[in-house]
């Protein structure tokens, strides 16, 4: 049989060039969902303004100007100023830096723990599964925010303590989702076929279970991100988050609360920032869930 290795390699190469990569297919499908694209645009805007904060805004977020207290939105201060005369928009943009950082850290922290526990629990079952799932039950029986307040109270203020306080319960959601996904994968025929060709347990987890659980995990991250943002904003609203004068959306709402009648723009604009970010992530999550499933054929 004429099977020349170089010939085959060239053929494969040219085939690969012609074919859309998996990633581009995901993008093609994602793009079809208008809301998801809007979500992506919102998040991109917030992300880039956060990144380019010093370039975009002429003000210093910590610059106190008592002569310009609580001035209403104008051409010089688009969203007005706060009780210490600081530009609200500037503080919100700098605040999105903190929000993004905390959000990403929380998701990484809880995602890492949650997914690993989910895999162990789902794939191996038995005693580890029992222990992990009971721990999840216990943690989830606490009111989340009260537990986070208690932990933040004990650990004290600070960025990393916020991450721990929120992540300590947050991972349980990942564990549950990943576990149930893995239970399905474990019973699938392709895993049975993998065993029949002699794959080791390690290889099955690595090559069959994890790749099929990844889409679930990615979607989870997009859905959990807003929860993390809201939780961290809540903590700083209660004064348990990052320390002032660092600007954070939660603390901006909190500081604006006392001037709700004279200067409603402070709290409201911060509220809108949170709302749009949360919506943005939710839209992206919805779009990704459909786009990552190769089998869904939609109109």
């Amino acid at each position: 049989m004429a099977t020349d290795i170089n010939e085959i390699r060239n053929e494969i190469k040219s085939l690969k060039q012609k074919k859309n990569s998996q990633l581009s297919l995901v993008w093609l499908r994602f793009k079809k969902n208008k809301l998801s694209v809007i979500g992506l645009i919102i998040i991109a805007i917030i992300f880039f303004t956060a990144l380019l904060a010093p370039v975009l805004t002429p003000y210093n977020p910590y610059q106190i100007d008592m002569t310009n207290r609580l001035s209403s939105p104008s051409s010089s201060n688009l969203l007005g100023t706060d009780a210490l005369g600081r530009d609200v928009l500037t503080r919100l943009i700098y605040g999105s830096r903190i929000a993004m950082l905390i959000g990403v850290l929380i998701v990484l922290f809880e995602g890492f723990i949650g997914i690993i526990f989910g895999i162990i629990s789902g794939f191996f079952g038995g005693l580890p599964d029992k222990i992990i799932m009971r721990l999840v039950d216990i943690l989830r029986s606490f009111p989340v925010i009260v537990l986070a307040i208690a932990i933040a109270g004990i650990l004290g203020q600070g960025l990393f303590n916020v991450v721990i306080a929120i992540g300590i319960v947050g991972w349980t959601t990942y564990t549950r989702m990943v576990r149930s996904k893995i239970l399905v994968i474990k019973e699938s025929e392709y895993v049975e076929n993998a065993r029949a060709i002699g794959e080791s347990t390690f290889s099955i987890v690595l090559r069959y279970v994890i790749p099929n659980a990844i889409p679930t995990a990615i979607v989870m991250v997009c859905i959990m991100m807003p929860t993390a943002l809201i939780a961290s904003a809540t903590l700083s609203y209660l004064g348990l988050g990052v320390q002032p004068p660092l600007a954070d959306w939660g603390s901006i709402i909190s500081s604006g609360r006392n001037y709700m009648l004279e200067a409603p723009w402070i709290s409201t604009s911060a509220g809108f920032f949170i709302m749009f970010t949360v919506l943005g992530f939710n839209f992206i999550g919805d779009g990704l869930r459909d786009a990552l499933d190769p089998t869904i054929k939609r109109n």
Binding site: E189, Y190, N193, Y208, P211, P294
Partner: peptide, 14 residues
């Protein structure tokens, strides 16, 4: 071993 459902027997990510 060749199983019944040709679709389910292949890893969708491979």
């Amino acid at each position: 071993f060749v199983s019944q459902d040709p679709h389910a027997s292949l890893n969708p990510r491979m």
